[in-house]
Design a protein around this nucleic acid. Structure first.
Length: 348
DNA sequence: GAAACGTGGTT
DNA sequence: TAACCAAGTTT
């Protein structure tokens, strides 16, 4: 039965896999790059970024030598920016401590920044043929349904259970195909909502299909709490130059550039915004206030208001947190999507 | 071990 | 349309 699971799956994969650029190589650098980009990210969203990175940095040495802001800028718009910082740090570590060659085992790969259990298994199996199972959202779903496993996949300890199940199934000599096949099935056939059991190679013995429980599996109990934040951006214009500020650690958009801002836990009226601005910058002259812009993220609902001000104010001009850039320079800065969208409409 | 981290697509 | 999900990792 287990034999049949893997054979049916791999056979299906051989005939139905999508043609993706990182599947046409055994270069661990490109495989690693694709895996980092694809963390929590759909293929269609990640594909253009993969091509940009390969084109800009053909080898891990090229990436390691790049300035961090350039790497962040290339990552701009993809989200989860710690991936970009870790990517860069990992590249430097590979060049410096591993003589430019990726380690070829699961346990060694795990030591690198930005590489966790999933990515280590992916690289070890895809690039080096090591028989370690990948466990990602797709694998959780396919296995939970096929074997009718109702453990809560939001619990970290459940990972081990699924890892062990996959480990029993993975063929020693076809680890790469097995891993990719399991994920491909989850991504294209055994999808969360509109699953396509009619075209599934594993439908025959799938417990969820037999008992009509596809919609109930996998079980995921954790609910994300959404926080509201109100951002009042102060846009200081000094002649043709624009003030930008690099965001610090321990918050959203770490290391990216946005405007000076006043943050509030509640929405402010126009009058309250004026008061708040005056409290912080008594000499400031408000030129224009934008309509609120809603920016929906997974954990936060952001409402941003853009306030243009005249900065004949010494304190502002000399504020060490703020740096003034020409519009040309601002274009080169890594910025969160929200700011990029605003600047594009307003200035570029 | 829970919470934080982005953005875009889907239902 | 609000909620869920996507080739997860870090703290």
């Amino acid at each position: 039965m287990i034999h049949s699971f893997s054979n049916l799956l791999i056979n299906w994969y051989n005939n139905n896999q999508r043609d993706l650029p990182w599947r046409n190589t055994s270069d661990p650098y490109k495989i690693w790059l694709s895996e980092i980009i694809l963390q929590q990210t759909r293929v269609n969203q990640g594909l253009p970024y993969f091509n940009k990175f390969v084109s800009q940095y053909p080898t891990v040495q090229d990436l390691a030598l790049a300035p961090e802001d350039e790497v962040m800028r290339l990552w701009q718009g993809l989200g989860y920016y710690s991936r970009a910082r870790n990517l860069h740090e990992c590249a430097k570590s590979i060049v410096k401590e591993y003589n430019g060659k990726f380690p070829d085992t699961y346990n060694e790969l795990l030591k690198l920044k930005g590489i966790g259990k999933y990515t280590a298994a992916a690289i070890a199996s895809f690039a080096f043929g090591q028989a370690v199972p990948v466990v990602d959202g797709n694998v959780f779903r396919v296995l939970a349904r096929y074997f009718d496993i109702s453990e809560d996949i939001a619990q970290p300890k459940t990972f081990t259970q699924f890892f062990n199940v996959a480990n029993e199934l993975i063929p020693q000599n076809q680890a790469a195909s097995f891993n990719q096949a399991l994920m491909e099935l989850g991504a294209t056939i055994c999808t969360p909502k509109k699953f396509d059991c009619g075209n599934c190679p594993l439908a025959q013995d799938c417990m969820a299909r037999i008992h009509h429980k596809q919609s109930e599996l996998p079980v995921k109990k954790k609910k994300i709490k959404v926080k509201n934040r109100y951002l009042y951006y102060l846009i200081w214009l000094n002649g043709e130059k624009l003030a930008m500020k690099k965001r610090g650690p321990k918050d959203i958009w770490q290391g990216l550039f946005d405007f000076d801002l006043i943050e509030s836990k509640i929405a402010l009226s126009t009058e309250e915004i004026f008061e708040e601005v005056n409290k912080h910058h008594s000499n400031a002259e408000v030129v224009e206030i934008s309509e609120p812009v809603k920016h929906i993220l997974s954990h936060q609902r952001l409402e941003a208001v853009f306030i243009e001000l005249k900065s004949n104010n010494e304190k502002i001009l000399n504020d060490s947190n703020l740096q003034y850039y020409t519009k040309q320079e601002v274009e080169e800065l890594p910025k969160p999507r929200l700011i990029e969208n605003y600047l594009t409409r307003k200035y570029f």
